[in-house]
Simulated assay, not measured.
Amino acid sequence: MYICGIHTDAGKTHLCVALCKAFNYSYFKIVQAGCNKDSDILRRFVKNVKVHKEGIFLNTPASPHIAKKLDNIEYSINDLILPNDDKMIIELAGGLFCPIDDNLTMIDFMKKHKRKVILAARNYLGMINHTILSIKALQDNGFDIVCVVMIGEIDTRLDEFIYNYTGVNIAHLEYFDEFNIDEKIQEFKNEIEKYLRS
């Protein structure tokens, strides 16, 4: 299952932590750009999580098509291989149209390896537009969207507009830390379970 974001800082890794802790998913990051690895955040919050080696590691925290040049690393989308794992969530880098190499984007990789999708979003001015554009891109490319997960504060006015316009279900994940993670993830699990089963 793919974990996508409506933009770079939408909360994909926060969502991956919750899914791995709630449902024992393993974790794979397609492209890691920067030495502060998202997988380290997973390991901090989720003990005994299975973390696959990232598909491509880039030292420079930048768009992959720029970072690969700065790092003097050559690869293309065809060099990215998904681990053979039936219970794995796959975190993308950036948004759906973030470059993955010199010519193609994350959604191009997804189209080659179709899986269900959860879309991470958060509340800021312009998020309705970004969320609906992302949903439409996924729908136009034939993806099965499990739900949108709104991360952080809950605003039912946003939920209602997005749901009424797209028909895609909405779940919620509040921010958590070491002190309230169990409570917040249990609430999230109770809410999203029905969408994962359908």
Rank of each mutant, 00 (worst) to 15 (best):
E178Y: 15
I77E: 00
M127E: 13
A171I: 06
N103C: 12
F45S: 13
C20A: 09
D102A: 10
K29G: 05
I89V: 15
M88A: 04
D108P: 06
A33M: 06
I77H: 07
C98F: 00
I56K: 02
I135D: 02
M127T: 14
I41W: 00
K189H: 08
C147K: 02
I185P: 09
R44I: 11
M106S: 03
S39P: 12
Y195F: 15
A137S: 11
N24A: 15
H14I: 12
E54T: 08
H7P: 05
G34Y: 11
D38R: 10
K69M: 11
N123C: 10
R157F: 13
Y195N: 11
Y163E: 13
D140A: 09
Y2Q: 08
E187H: 08
Y175D: 11
T166I: 12
I128Q: 11
I66H: 11
Y2M: 08
G95T: 02
L125Q: 13
L96A: 06
L119S: 04
I170F: 10
L133F: 01
V51S: 03
R44W: 09
I132V: 15
Y195Q: 13
T105Q: 06
H130N: 09
H65V: 01
N72F: 03
P99G: 09
E160Q: 14
I107A: 06
N59W: 00
F23N: 06
F109S: 05
G5T: 07
D38L: 08
L125F: 07
R157N: 15
D9Y: 07
V168G: 13
R157S: 12
C98W: 01
M88D: 00
V17Y: 05
I90R: 02
L82Q: 03
L42M: 15
I6W: 07
C4A: 14
E91P: 06
F28R: 01
R157T: 14
S134P: 03
S26G: 06
C16Y: 03
V168F: 08
I185K: 07
P61R: 09
V146L: 11
V51L: 05
H65A: 10
G126E: 08
K87F: 00
K50G: 00
K112P: 08
N141C: 07
C20P: 06
N36H: 14
E191G: 14
C16D: 10
V168N: 11
V51T: 09
Q186G: 01
Y25S: 13
I151V: 13
V146K: 06
I135K: 05
V146A: 00
K184F: 01
E174L: 15
K111D: 04
M106P: 00
K194W: 01
I73K: 15
C20M: 05
D140C: 03
